[in-house]
Amino acid sequence: MERTLTRGTALVLFGAGAVAAALPARAAASLRVGMIPDAGATQVSIDEKAPLRDYLSAKIGRPVELVIPTNYNATVEALGNGSLDFAYLGGLTYLKARQAYGVMPLVQRISDRQFHSLFITQTGSGIEKLTDLRGKRFAFGDVASTSGHLMPDYALRGAGIDPDKDMTVRYTGNHPATAKAVESGTVDAGALDESVFKALLDGGQIDKTKVRVFFTTPPFVDYVWAARKDVPAADQTALANAFLALKSPADDKILTILRGTSFVRADDAEYATLRKIALQLKLL
């Protein structure tokens, strides 16, 4: 009877193998572009970004599929295992992806070269400078975020505050949640991405009268569009050119989605300082 069992198992294995072999190789017809989940990874937010998708498809001449992974890690791993071809990455995420999978930096917004994190607090909190944060409840965004964690952390340490020891720290997971946590008073203060904060104020999701900025970090390099190492050079160039071709009044619809004004070429060398900081804070 053991023989029968073995035969059965073999049959199952053979069947599975046959099915696997019959599967066609992954269709590479469309380019898969990932965006970081800074404002929610939902079907709706993908739909909202449809103009960007259409623009890219038209420029590259290939169908483009927009994907919004739920978090930074997912985005990088997707670049690693080939389920994404291009991705929009934060500074720290880019460093991780570069280190792990050798991704290629392509383009970034002009503002990304001179990016800032904002420290915000309630209007009447009495917190005026970083040293006032000692003993307070503080919100970072995603632990892997540059503007939501890495740079604010660095700034705090520069001011002599060790976030691990001198404050009660929480990771909210994303920028809007940080803003909301500060607005509602769940935390005393928080740090987040300047462009997201501006968009939240403009969109009315955060009450201008309840929250104020009390510190802005020195500029640093942040977001970048990057390509998976194995994406053909022609596709890389096509995508980069599509972004570089965006001009202000004409393409405003798409630029709003991207929260930028114009794009420039990106280069790994600009990230040297950021890399040093990340290593120093043991986040890389």
Partner: peptide, 12 residues
Amino acid sequence: GTELVGAINALD
């Protein structure tokens, strides 16, 4: 589930 997390993250 992913949709829900996204909607909550977007404060929607």
